[in-house]
Design a protein around this nucleic acid. Structure first.
Length: 290
RNA sequence: CGCGGGGUGGAGCAGCUGGUAGCUCGCCAGGCUCAUAACCUGGAGGUCACAGGUUCGAAUCCUGUCCCCGCAA
């Protein structure tokens, strides 16, 4: 039987394993990749392509970058064949019903949480931030309401003792890719979400990473560092806390926190400086005139 | 020309109202110690980003260049 055709919508690094897996599997055929437009990034405002675009080009797949996919859909749809599946992974734009209906079999989404928990934009960060015991990935059939579609497949993953967002991200991305393939390869079986158990997580902003040792306990700050690094990052005054611990360490910079707790900063980055060890920063502090 | 910080021995910093470079560490050697990330002694290691200028003399003042980074997006 001929492979399932797929139109892939994705943008960030989380989507890479899914795209790579689909493209490398004989049961599927990716006919087009839709991703966000290149965006100006950094001090130089250099136009930077999203990770998915880079991968798609390497794989030799046609790439489309609509500014507003819903508005440009009519034109866009004419450029590609109707696929069996429309797969959306961390794409970044809400798809209209018209687009969802484009797929002949189903529009599906890979979401980095155990739906109905943590619907929304930042499920990985929130799983760490809220100190959840487990997380996972869900493949759902997309419906109009965000992340509310019936579940097609789910993989649970326990969180490590001191789980970090970046580590969890990679694990979930890999698990998501595996789950996506195994789910789509078999006849779809839908399990409705229990909407009454739904929780939500909003998009994070830089202010979520602002921290004040005078008002927060070491454990609290440590959890934020693990959850919000590398994005949006945790900042204290003019420096970013990159890596922290609750256990004393020779290379750490001890910071007294609320409730007589101590946070051991293993590495940090003052404004205008490169990342450095906590102990190195502390040495600089002892210099005369300070 | 979006705003701003910075480039000084391996690391983090000071010195910058001009006069042959210093601190906290690290490293090497020796000593003390049951022992140590502790302590003591000694030592190696620096074209002070680069180029030009001012000066008797510049890390330090002036000009230009390169590089790194924070914010904003």
């Amino acid at each position: 039987m001929s492979p399932f055709s797929v139109v892939f919508c994705g943008t960030s690094a989380f989507a890479l394993p899914c795209l790579e897996a689909l493209s490398g599997d004989g049961r599927f055929r990716v006919t087009a990749v839709i991703t966000q437009p290149d965006k100006p990034v950094g001090r130089k405002q250099l136009l930077t392509p999203p990770p998915v675009k880079t991968l798609a080009q390497r794989l030799g797949l046609p790439v489309f970058q609509p500014v507003k996919i819903n508005a440009e859909w009519k034109e866009l749809a004419g450029k590609m064949e109707k696929p069996d599946f429309l797969v959306a992974v961390s794409y970044g734009q809400i798809l209209s019903q018209e687009i969802l209906d484009f797929a002949t079999k189903a529009p599906v989404n890979v979401h980095a949480s155990l739906l109905p928990e943590l619907r929304g934009a930042s499920p990985i960060q929130h799983a760490v931030l809220l100190n959840h015991a487990k997380s996972g990935v869900t493949v759902q059939r997309m419906v109009k309401e965000l992340d509310a579609g019936p579940v097609l497949g789910q993989t649970e993953l326990p969180l490590e003792e001191r789980e970090t967002t970046s580590a969890l991200h990679d694990k979930l991305a890999a698990a998501g890719a595996a789950l996506l393939l195994s789910t789509l390869a078999k006849p779809l079986k839908e399990v409705p979400q229990d909407a009454s158990k739904a929780t939500f997580c909003r998009k994070l902003s830089r202010t979520d990473g602002v921290v004040d040792p005078a008002a927060m306990s070491a454990a609290d700050i440590d959890r934020r560092v693990r959850a919000l690094t590398p994005w949006p990052g945790v900042s204290w005054n003019d420096m970013k806390l990159l890596e922290t611990s609750l256990i004393p360490h020779a290379d750490a910079y001890p910071v007294p926190c609320a409730g007589s707790t101590t946070l051991y900063v293993l590495s940090l980055q003052p404004a205008g400086k490169k990342p450095m060890q906590g102990a190195a920063y502390a040495r600089g502090l002892r210099s005369p005139s300070l």
